[in-house]
Design a protein around this nucleic acid. Sequence first.
DNA 1: GTGACATAATTGCTTGCACAAGCATATACA
DNA 2: TGTATATGCTTGTGCAAGCAATTATGTCAC
Lengths: 180, 180
Amino acid sequence: MPSPGAGPAHPPLSQSQLAAWRSFLRAHTVITRALERELVASQRLPLAEYDVLVQLDSAPGGALRMSQLADQVLLSRSGLTRLVERLEGAGMVRRQVCPSDARGSLAVLTEAGRERLREAAPSHLNSVRSHFADALTEDQLEELHQLLERLLEQLPEGDPGEGGCSAVEPGPAEAGECGA
Amino acid sequence: MPSPGAGPAHPPLSQSQLAAWRSFLRAHTVITRALERELVASQRLPLAEYDVLVQLDSAPGGALRMSQLADQVLLSRSGLTRLVERLEGAGMVRRQVCPSDARGSLAVLTEAGRERLREAAPSHLNSVRSHFADALTEDQLEELHQLLERLLEQLPEGDPGEGGCSAVEPGPAEAGECGA
DNA sequence: GTGACATAATTGCTTGCACAAGCATATACA
DNA sequence: TGTATATGCTTGTGCAAGCAATTATGTCAC
């Protein structure tokens, strides 16, 4: 793809484009902040950590390679290393050498980690509902989902190296009793 | 509102709710990263700084009170202080005491800042198009906008004190020649 | 088997943000 | 006028994240 900086054509964005873009940014920031604030306040658990627990919980055996986990939580590898260190220090995760490739590490959810997730999930899910899901009907959510998927599909390229923000997602619908 | 942590009802989120929520997070992260990467690569300008320039450019007189600016760019007050310091060091902004209230500061866009914005805007707008706007039709953008506005409307409360993420938005459609 | 290169994760360093405390000014009220 | 309180911004501090460099392991060619 040509350098995005130098494209010859740059008509201003249309009103719809601009408005949609702005509300997209604002909605994400506002909602995300609220969820973070509420989860930390009620559970002492940052969203990024919650997200890691969820991903591990929904992985087979509660274990995931570091790289794969980093991709799933949209964090850089180094960022994930530190995050998992914290979780390890708190007893929620342990690390073990990958049996099939000694270069790799497995992050494994401990029983304590699973328990922590179970405790925290209801709070977080309530937050997601109250700041996000409850504002829209099922049909509207479906519509939103499809629009967003369309955005994701057309991305010029899957990011290479480091992913990076952080996120937070409840488990895969029916995984542990707390994805629910 | 009752503590979100303790809500008595916590049915799991529905598939639609979950799917929409996940794609929302992922889309934001992926798109935002791409824009940041491209703007820094092509213009040496982080999105947060670009956003401040845009907000100032579209304000009357190119000036804004610090607090108001912080609210607009969704940054904490202290965060904005530091950001404006950086811009000031780079000559893109200057500060002056607010004439009507000596406690306040005005951040004022300099000619150099305006020029910098003019240079950077085409690149950024191209990025917004290629990673966001071009994926959807005008109708779809309109639809997306309305769904997101609905989310924003129903927020339990406008955040009090410190806002905080960062964002990036092109100017108000018809402001300077670079909002366009 | 040995050497060149790829890949996984970690470590050092830098940057940017938020929270809390502090300083200066403004406002209310006696 | 003088004192108490609120407001606007900045500074001190700590933390989390990314990039670049490093270490350890795996893979392939020969």
